[in-house]
Simulated assay, not measured.
Amino acid sequence: MTLGRYDYERRYRRRVRAGLIKFVLLTALVLGVGLFAYQMGIEQLKGRDVTLREEIATLSRQKAELELLASQMQHAARTAEARVGELEGRLQREVPTGDLAKLSQLVSDRLKGGLDANRLAFVISQAQTPRNCQPADTKRFTLTTPLLKGGARGVAFGNGTITVTGEGQSSHDSQGNAESWYDPGQPVTIKITGIGGKSTSVTGVLPLHQSLVVDNSEYRFTIAAAQRSFVEVTADRCAYP
């Protein structure tokens, strides 16, 4: 009876130990699987976090690039608007309209027709609204040259209140020798002197135009080449202003 009880108790303890070992192994397995799953979850979260950070960095760069592009486009738009405004203003200033356009076309047609530009400019400069003027007075005199300096050379207008004098370059003969009279193809200098010392001068190739105001009168002079050695001076006298 004692031996039977001993065998029974020993088998019981073995079953208990085996059950305990199984429980421990099962618990270890469960813990291992849980730990592995937890570690995998951590790694996945880390990987996802890295991916999200990279996506955020990429989106941030794209946002900065788009903002820079938008700023550049706005600047380009403002520059284009300013340029358009400048061109519109220039167009309004430089392209004639109305009466000015008609006159511009008329001048262009006359120039294409062969009319001398200087002549046309003179005609336009002489055009003016009606004024209180006296009949034109025309006189002539000989120009002073390097070989023709002696004597008083000039003409007077306005009862002697204005004197017109001038000088030019000597003409040359076919052998190149200097002559006494002036060369109308070279620039001349015309000096207009009013009473009291008020004066003005003009230099250039004839014909020339100049004006001078003395007291309450404006004298407008046209100086043109005449017969050899002479220039012809036409003076218009009008009330001023």
Rank of each mutant, 00 (worst) to 15 (best):
S104E: 14
S104L: 09
S104H: 15
S104Q: 12
Q105P: 01
Q105F: 09
L106D: 13
L106H: 10
L106K: 09
S108I: 07
S108K: 11
D109V: 08
R110V: 03
R110E: 07
L111N: 06
L111H: 12
L111Q: 00
L111K: 05
K112W: 10
K112C: 05
K112H: 06
G113Q: 10
G114T: 05
L115V: 13
L115T: 10
L115E: 15
D116A: 13
D116S: 05
A117Q: 15
A117H: 07
N118T: 11
N118G: 10
R119C: 08
L120K: 02
L120P: 01
A121K: 07
F122C: 00
F122W: 07
V123G: 04
S125V: 10
S125K: 15
Q126V: 01
Q126L: 13
Q126R: 14
A127T: 14
A127G: 14
Q128T: 01
Q128F: 03
T129E: 14
T129W: 10
P130Y: 06
P130S: 05
R131W: 01
R131H: 06
R131C: 01
N132D: 15
N132Y: 09
C133M: 02
C133Y: 00
Q134W: 03
Q134C: 01
Q134D: 13
Q134A: 11
Q134S: 15
P135G: 01
P135T: 03
P135V: 04
A136N: 08
A136F: 04
A136Y: 06
A136M: 05
A136R: 09
D137L: 09
D137H: 03
D137N: 08
D137C: 01
T138V: 08
T138Y: 04
K139T: 03
K139R: 15
R140G: 10
R140Q: 14
T142K: 12
T142D: 12
T142N: 10
L143H: 04
L143S: 05
L143M: 08
T144W: 05
T144C: 04
T144N: 07
T144P: 00
T145D: 00
P146W: 02
P146I: 07
P146F: 09
P146D: 14
P146A: 09
L147I: 02
L147E: 08
L147T: 06
